[in-house]
Simulated assay, not measured.
Amino acid sequence: MSEEFNVGDRVRWNSRTGAVTGEVTEVHTADFEFMGRRRVCSEDDPQYKVRSDATALHAVHRADALRRLG
């Protein structure tokens, strides 16, 4: 089972430009729309909205794409 994250957790993920660090800003457990695309998630398979430290832009990832910092 993947690790679970909470709002405020510091995380790292990979992007096209390399490793990115940031913070979890939202935890989604029901389907939602992000940047014009429907994101499918559930209590058992949440998705996490994260904010990049470098750009302050947001992205959405599943738990298996994130690594806890610290």
Rank of each mutant, 00 (worst) to 15 (best):
S2W: 08
S2G: 04
S2E: 09
E4V: 06
F5R: 02
F5H: 04
N6V: 08
V7I: 15
V7Y: 03
G8W: 02
G8I: 06
G8T: 00
R10E: 09
R10P: 05
R10A: 10
V11T: 07
V11R: 00
R12P: 00
R12F: 02
W13G: 05
W13F: 11
W13N: 01
S15E: 08
S15C: 14
R16L: 13
G18Q: 07
A19L: 12
V20N: 15
T21Q: 15
T21H: 13
T21F: 12
T21S: 13
G22L: 10
E23H: 00
T25M: 11
E26Y: 10
V27M: 06
T29E: 15
A30Y: 09
A30L: 14
A30P: 01
D31N: 15
D31M: 04
D31I: 02
F32Y: 14
E33I: 12
F34I: 08
F34Y: 12
M35S: 11
M35R: 14
G36H: 05
R37A: 12
R38I: 10
R39P: 00
R39Y: 07
V40W: 12
S42V: 09
S42Y: 07
E43Q: 13
D44E: 13
D45C: 08
D45W: 14
P46W: 05
Q47K: 15
Q47C: 12
Q47T: 06
Y48W: 06
K49N: 02
K49R: 15
V50C: 15
V50N: 06
R51L: 09
S52F: 11
S52Y: 09
D53A: 08
D53V: 03
A54W: 06
T55A: 01
T55I: 12
A56S: 14
A56E: 13
A56Y: 13
A56V: 11
L57V: 10
L57D: 11
A59V: 12
V60P: 07
H61Q: 06
R62D: 07
R62Y: 14
A65W: 12
A65E: 13
A65P: 04
L66T: 01
L66R: 02
R67K: 10
R67Q: 11
R68F: 04
R68V: 04
L69F: 03
L69H: 03
G70L: 02
G70T: 00
